[in-house]
Simulated assay, not measured.
Amino acid sequence: MEQFSWDAGVIALAATPIGNLADATPRLLSAFEQADLIASEDTRRTGLLRERLGIVRRAPLVSCHEHNEADKAEQIISCAADGQRVLLVTDAGMPTVSDPGYVIVQAAIKRGISLTVLPGPSAPLLALALSGLPTDRFCFEGFLPRKSAALRQRLEQLAGEERTMIFLESPRRLAASLSALAQIFGAERPAAVCRELTKIHEEVWRGSIGELKDKAPGVRGEIVVVVAGASPRAPLEEAEAVKVVLDRVEKGQRLKDAAKAVAVQSGHSAKVLYNRILAERK
């Protein structure tokens, strides 16, 4: 097996285990040994990971997280420009995927700094594979908004999405997010909740959104939610779209929100649908 090595002045993005240490690849171990500088989301966790993996050579660690990445970018890029081998890692999984790294990558590209990648674990893809939902077309939506109004707005925008959707979620917010999904996507939409992937207590719940939301209270661990895409629909006539809006309103949704959601799905103007219903109510 060929040992990993990279040229001086190159930044390597490396995926780290998301739970099981055995998922650390030989290339990752070699990269830790060879790096001149390691840009890390949490230097304490990366230091512990090196210890647990038995890494002997200890390159300097520099903190690079969501709150300081823009400030640290120049320092990290300058080190690479000076010929150092820079390893970029996060606490778990692949850098830049709902984790720090994007700003560094963009800065490196602008400066002409070469990049390479060391593949490895990624929670969204593992959850997709385990979900039992279609994998031929999918999209990754990251973390859903915390505030209820923003959450509803995001889900209304996605209600007509036909690709399988992947979300990350906090266990504390899982019940609220699944309840919103059930209301906006429909309680019968197939979904899966994957928790603690690659860890001892790995678990996957499969079923309808309505079934899954009833299991959510009290859940713990790292969560990935996978939701089936919407079924393709024939284009709605304006009158049909109005009926769908009214149906949503009868179920408790605000008229303005319902009109916006149906507009996304049907292609009709939300303003036209809204005004037509107001006119019919007079």
Rank of each mutant, 00 (worst) to 15 (best):
A39W: 01
R206M: 04
K260D: 11
A22E: 13
V105Y: 00
P235Y: 10
D99I: 12
I18Y: 07
G19C: 05
R254E: 14
E250C: 03
E202L: 08
H65Y: 14
A263Y: 06
A107W: 04
E74N: 13
A182I: 10
A129Q: 13
F167D: 09
R137K: 09
T198I: 08
F4Q: 04
M94E: 08
A228L: 12
S40K: 10
D7S: 15
A176M: 05
W6A: 06
S266P: 04
S179L: 00
L128Q: 03
G93W: 07
I109L: 14
L125R: 05
R276P: 02
N20H: 09
A239L: 10
E66R: 13
A279R: 12
G142E: 00
S131D: 14
L236Q: 07
R57Q: 11
K213T: 11
E141F: 11
R44C: 05
E2M: 09
E141D: 07
Q3R: 06
V86P: 04
L151F: 12
H268K: 02
E237P: 02
G160L: 01
A259R: 11
R57W: 00
A263R: 02
E141S: 09
R44F: 04
T25W: 07
I11H: 03
V117S: 11
E250V: 13
V227A: 12
I184H: 03
G160D: 05
S266M: 06
